[in-house]
């Protein structure tokens, strides 16, 4: 990771609160292009809120994998994935694709689905898929979106570790920068190069992954 690469996300003294309860406070975080960052910490530590702040920093550069898959259950997998590029096509084309999908778009979406192991589900209704499949559709939508910064909130939580690793590798190959909230320590250490740990709304650890091991991270998870 070249140190001089440009800063994509800069948060300075960021704070957030919900209904009077402070969730994040005095938080400084800079993510540079090309970094692969894992956000870790107990549930309730503020990861999802931080993900939201990051996404809001540069929405036009971000492809998002939200925590809940956020699929439109009544539409097909194709349409859900295609939604990743709605903003880059003419509305007329989008409306037409709802009724009669264009061949080129089908092919493009099919390629994406191949990469996440959902080759056979192109026309299945999203609501009829299993939880793990839905999560991969959500990932596929972000892949199809293709914007340089991938922000994911537990994007592989419903998958086994091997599958998860494969999906994260796909994301890494596809997007220049990754910012992922993860809870699987081994996966985080293997697939990212920087670990940021949150506790009670503050960053308590920010270090290169290669300097860390599971033992070093375990205190932040015990009693969770």
């Amino acid at each position: 990771m070249p140190a001089e690469s440009r800063a994509e996300i800069v948060l300075e003294n960021a704070a957030a609160s919900y209904g009077g309860r402070t969730v994040l406070s005095g938080l400084d975080l800079t993510v540079r292009a090309g970094e692969r960052v894992a956000l870790m910490g107990r549930s309730g530590a503020g990861k999802s809120t931080l993900i939201g702040l990051i996404q809001a920093q540069a929405p036009e550069k971000v492809a998002l994998v939200p925590q809940a898959a956020a699929l439109v259950r009544t539409l097909s997998v194709f349409h859900n994935v295609y939604m990743g590029q709605l903003d880059r096509r003419s509305t007329l084309h989008n409306l037409r694709n709802l009724v009669r999908p264009a061949k080129a778009d089908i092919a493009a979406v099919q390629r994406i689905l191949d990469r996440v192991g959902l080759a056979d589900t192109l026309w299945a209704k999203a609501g009829e898929l299993s939880g793990g499949q839905q999560q991969r559709v959500s990932v596929a939508r972000a892949l199809y979106n293709g914007r340089p910064i991938l922000v994911g909130d537990e994007p592989v939580s419903a998958l086994d570790r091997q599958q998860g690793a494969r999906i994260l590798a796909e994301l890494a190959q596809n997007h220049e920068t990754l910012i992922l909230a993860l809870h699987d320590v081994a996966l985080a250490l293997a697939q990212t190069d920087r670990i940021v740990v949150l506790e009670a709304g503050r960053i308590v650890l920010d270090a290169p992954a290669q300097n860390l091991d599971p033992a070093r991270l375990s205190p932040y998870y015990e009693a969770a």
Binding site: L64, H79, M83, L86
Partner: peptide, 12 residues
């Protein structure tokens, strides 16, 4: 959070 807008949001 990254939902589309306007007619795209409406239709999709």
């Amino acid at each position: 959070a990254d939902a589309p807008r306007g007619l795209n949001l409406y239709a999709y």
